[in-house]
Design a protein around this nucleic acid. Structure first.
Lengths: 181, 181
DNA sequence: AGCAGGTATTTTACTCGTGAATTATTGATT
DNA sequence: AATCAATAATTCACGAGTAAAATACCTGCT
């Protein structure tokens, strides 16, 4: 389908992104190859990589990794205690990773652990006051920083992008995502 | 679970992706918070993670990691010898990572190393016949598999997505990407 | 020539994440 | 009651990636 979607070159000399150059190289080596998927997936991955790298910077100043931030955020937004297993599912991490992160976060006094009364296998994690204060302080800064990263796109573009990615995500979750209970 | 309130948006009850639920949780905890950046960046990252995981599957059958595939692909599409440093820059990896990957790829007979005649610090890597055959055999399968992953979106949506991501990528590269050389 | 400083690559020491075992516990079955 | 399978969390062993040090080499300057 996308075989003929030559991005109109030769018109306005709009700068090329890095992926465009890669696609052109492939066209020279394998003329007629449908590089449509690469155009989308390559850009998606590259944007994601650049964004993650940038987005982590403000957190690092607080000595938090993105993964730890995700745990705090998950506890904050759900507003209730969560077990390690639930945290793993919510943050798409392995149980082992969650165990490690929780140990550090507990040591820092940001989350607290409460044993379950009925089932002594499970633990319940919640934010301490300090943890809640930290995330509530960080989140607005984090969001406005992220917003500045997206400032190259108009509000309309962002809306469309968000919608299309939502469609894609829904589709991918259907085929690959966790078979949610 | 608890988030089972009726979506009174009056529209078709389209299923929600995972990020939508997260955004709704944040709205309940911090009403009025501008979660726009999360809507975009969260979905972008999640799509990227799901795609990367899926995309690696066919490669794994050949015993190749995505990172190794990237190296082979870079050598193939540029069509000439590259130094480890150039490969690192092209694949956005550290020099150390490239060194490791090259050792494995050399051992497997997929790439060949040639010392530079003038400057004995540098090496020139190229694909062996076997390496070229492997990537030429893999690439079409890889692309059609990727295409199937994107089948949930229409051609038009894919085109728009590609264009918008290109804009974003260009913007991000400008602020975060390669510093002037 | 000899050395200072720069560059290309590799090595080292480390962090982080994972899958597979391990431990501890529960609930069901006999 | 004793045992068995299932489940929750943790520990273990390992692989992969990184930053920084080390290595090896080049170039230009005095």
């Amino acid at each position: 389908m996308g075989a003929k979607d030559q991005p109109d070159e030769g018109e306005l000399s709009v700068a090329e992104d890095i992926v465009a150059g890669v696609l052109r190289q492939w066209q020279q080596v394998h003329p007629g190859l449908d590089t449509g998927p690469m155009a989308v997936i390559g850009r998606l991955n590259r944007c994601s990589a650049l964004l993650q790298q940038a987005v982590d910077a403000p957190l690092a100043q607080e000595g938090l990794s993105r993964a730890e931030f995700d745990i705090l955020g998950t506890l904050r937004r759900t507003g209730r205690e969560l077990t390690p297993g639930q945290l793993a599912r919510e943050t798409f991490a392995s149980g082992a990773a969650v165990t490690k992160r929780l140990r550090l976060l507990e040591e820092r006094g940001l989350v607290a652990r409460r044993p379950d009364a009925r089932d002594r296998r499970v633990a319940h994690l919640s934010l301490t006051d300090e943890g809640r204060e930290l995330i509530d302080r960080l989140l607005p800064d984090q969001l406005s920083f992220e917003s500045s990263l997206l400032s190259g796109l108009s509000g309309e573009e962002l809306g469309n992008l968000s919608t299309t990615l939502s469609d894609l995500l829904l589709h991918l979750e259907g085929r690959l995502g966790t078979p949610r209970t």
